[in-house]
């Protein structure tokens, strides 16, 4: 164990964050301001998510950290190590075994269960920000439920691209009231936000906001009647595990246009391969 307080932050700070979280849970989708602390990592690396995680962790928790679905990328590895060192909690790469999952820009493929907490890292929590730069005005728009502008953005998308081209950070309406930025998850993941048994918390460190989706909350993606919301993904199966329903990363494999599609959720892909599923490239790998 280190000389740090449990999970790095001091107890008063954690209390302050927990109060913000409770308020966020009480008002689903509402952005609660909180006194974000400086963390030993740059803004944009998940300072908000880390503070929410620190406030929620208990010594009995089992932590999983993912970055774009992967357990083994820099961001995920360093945050996992951070909490191993400062909180000495157990860690795991299995979605099903984790009690607390901090994520950057993905929701795990495996459905979450009751008792789990999913913590999102959020760069810009205000869904109206790029339409209305004034914070005073966006707050008033939230207060008055004045969300016509959000549809203007979607209208512009269709007018320019023929379809709603927003493919990540796709705005949602929570429980029929607040319009919320679900953090830059692909819109493929949007349907999973709604009605999950798990608690979903969102932390934005630089912007000093926390918001939440409590379990079994209705989350609707905004759309037009004649251009309904579509959860899109690359139209391929995974080249390693053969899954046709998971969200895929496209990986360039050589300079001659060779590419492969693999599950972005590494745990999902690995456990499917362990169960004996294979894709286009995995059988070749086995043979070689």
């Amino acid at each position: 164990m280190s000389d740090y307080n449990f999970a790095y932050l001091d107890e008063q700070t954690k209390r302050m964050i927990r109060r913000a979280i409770l308020k966020g849970v009480a008002v689903p989708g509402y952005q609660v301001p909180f006194a974000s602390r400086e963390m030993p990592m740059p803004y944009g690396w998940g300072t908000g998510g880390v503070q929410v995680t620190a406030a929620c962790l208990t010594p009995d928790d089992r932590l999983k950290v993912i970055d774009q679905g992967a357990d083994d990328t820099t961001n995920a590895v360093s945050i996992r190590k951070f909490f191993q060192r400062t909180a000495a909690v157990a860690v795991t790469e299995h979605t099903g075994a984790a009690t607390l999952i901090q994520t950057r820009h993905r929701i795990p493929e495996r459905p979450l269960i009751a008792g789990q907490i999913l913590v999102y890292q959020v760069p810009i929590p205000e869904p109206l920000r790029f339409l209305e730069p004034r914070e005073t005005e966006t707050r008033r728009m939230h207060a008055l439920e004045d969300y016509g502008l959000m549809h203007v953005k979607l209208y512009e998308d269709i007018a320019r691209n023929g379809a709603i081209a927003t493919s990540y950070a796709y705005p949602v309406k929570v429980e029929g009231r607040y319009v919320m930025d679900p953090s830059p998850i692909p819109k493929f993941d949007n349907p999973k936000l709604s009605g999950t048994p798990a608690l979903q918390l969102f932390g934005a460190g630089r912007e000093q906001r926390i918001y939440a989706i409590p379990p079994f909350t209705k989350v609707v993606s905004l759309d037009f009647e004649d251009y309904p919301f579509e959860a899109t993904k690359a139209p391929h199966p995974c080249d390693l595990c053969g899954d046709e329903g998971s969200y895929l990363d496209e990986v360039i494999t050589d300079d001659r246009g060779g590419r492969m599609f693999v599950c972005s959720d590494t745990d999902h892909c690995a456990s499917r391969q362990a169960e004996g599923h294979g894709g286009r490239l995995s059988t070749q790998g086995d043979a070689a």
Binding site: D146, G148, L149, H151, V152, Y155, E156, I158, A159, R160, D223, F224, E225, D226, Y227
Partner: peptide, 20 residues
């Protein structure tokens, strides 16, 4: 925002949700 979006904003603000 495009001219069409400008004209449509008030419609969308009062609840129009049909792009066409």
């Amino acid at each position: 925002v495009s001219a069409g979006g400008n004209v449509g904003e008030r419609l969308m603000a009062v609840g129009a949700r049909h792009y066409g």
